[in-house]
Structure formats: C-alpha cells, structure tokens
C-alpha cells in the first residue's frame, strides 16, 4: 500500500479510543490485581492472628511504609515508561531512598543488638518462606499490570517490565505485611527487598516479549 493512501485512510478512519480509557483499564487491572493478592493472602497464608496488637507497633508501620513507598514510586515509573518519549527523570534515584532508609534502620538495630543476637535479627523465624510468599502474592498484580501496559505504548520494554515487576512485588509486600510476624528492620531490609526483586527480575526478563506491540 502506498504511504499516502495509508495516511488518508488513517485520517478518515472513524475508530477512536479516548485517551482516558487505556489508563482506566490499567488502573482497573491494578485494582483487580490487588484484590486478587489480598484474596490469595487470606486464603493461602492467613492474616497474622496477632495483627491487632502488631498494628500498634511503630515497626509495623515502618515495614508497611517501606513497601508502600516502593509501590508508589514504581507505579509512577510504570506510568512514565508506558508513554513514548516521557523521561524517567529522577524516579530511579528516588526509588533508592526507601531502600536506603530501611538499611539505615537495619544498621541502627544491628549496631544496638548484642553480638549473639544479631543473626536472629536478619533471619527471624521465617526467612526461608518470606521472599517466595511475597513473590507469590505479587503474581496477580504482575499479570494485570503487564496486561494494562500492553494497551499503552512502552518503548523501553526491559525497563518497563522491571518497573511492573517491582511495583507488583511491592504490592505483594504490602499485602504480606498483614501476615508476616517479623518486625526487625534487618529482616525487612533483606528478605522483603529480595521478595520484591524476584518479580522485578522476572519482569525485566519477560518484558521484551510480553510488552511488545
């Protein structure tokens, strides 16, 4: 087909997608994914029975704040990376700040602890399952975020996939907070981060294939 014909065909075409609908679909997808993650947590690994008491502790809110701020920053990255030519800007260094903050808290806790007690701060009782469970809780959001992004136009697919993965991992961690009995900052700094990195790395690997348009 001649390019001029294509142009006139496109220019006269009636099909029209409003700017808002693709974004609404992404947000709807993310919302459904979050419901899915919560449902999975309640069904597969129940809510922490001591949640009522734990929720009054500062450490719980540090943990939740860490996961939630990573989720918010990665969502911003997902949105920016879904539009062609929109710069990522300072979002990547900003993403490092909650990680840095939790590591500082971890350092303080580590330095203040008795030498014999330090390993317990890092390993808690649940380190073996924590990253896996976070990654599992991330899967519904991971799938729906990638689905929503396909309707938009990511051009840096590897980075976009990684951002979607990091976002879903952080949402998974937020949901996991309501199950997890661990409260020590060194534990969060290591295993929660690792749990978020599993979907992030997966996203970077599958992004170029799944997000291609």
């Amino acid at each position: 087909m001649k390019t001029d014909d294509l142009i006139s065909m496109l220019a006269t075409g009636a099909n029209h997608e409003s700017a808002g609908s693709a974004w609404r679909r992404l947000m709807l997808g993310i919302g459904l994914g979050m419901i899915g993650s919560t449902f999975l947590m309640v069904k597969a690994i129940p809510v922490n029975p001591a949640l009522g008491a734990v929720i009054q502790l500062l450490e719980f809110w540090e943990k939740l704040g860490f996961a939630a701020s990573i989720a918010a920053i990665s969502l911003l990255l997902v949105i920016r990376l879904s539009q062609p030519g929109v710069r990522v800007g300072k979002a990547l260094p900003v993403l490092m700040s909650p990680i840095l903050a939790i590591w500082i808290l971890a350092g303080i806790a580590f330095a203040g602890a008795e030498p014999g007690h330090r390993a317990a701060l890092f390993f808690g009782n649940t380190w073996k399952v924590c990253p896996i469970l976070i990654a599992m809780l991330a899967t519904p959001v991971f799938a729906t975020t990638l689905w929503g992004m396909r309707e938009l136009a990511p051009t840096r697919l590897r980075l976009a996939g990684a951002a979607a993965g990091m976002f879903s991992g952080a949402v998974g961690a937020v949901v996991y907070c309501f199950h997890c009995p661990e409260l020590d900052a060194p534990f969060i700094a290591l295993w929660y981060l690792l749990g978020m990195l599993i979907p992030a790395v997966t996203g970077a690997l599958v992004g170029p294939r799944l997000l291609r348009w």
């Binding site: 997608e17 409003s18 700017a19 808002g20 609908s21 693709a22 879904s82 539009q83 062609p84 030519g85 929109v86 938009l152 136009a153 051009t155 348009w213």
Partner: peptide, 17 residues
Amino acid sequence: KRHTYNRTQPLGAWVHA
C-alpha cells in the same frame, strides 16, 4: 497509540520515541 500522547509533552519527543 495516540491515546498515550500527553498534551504537556513535546510532540516531537513522543513521535521520535
């Protein structure tokens, strides 16, 4: 993909990307 263009953004950058 014209729905991904944001009015505050330079059009050239969007088309170029």
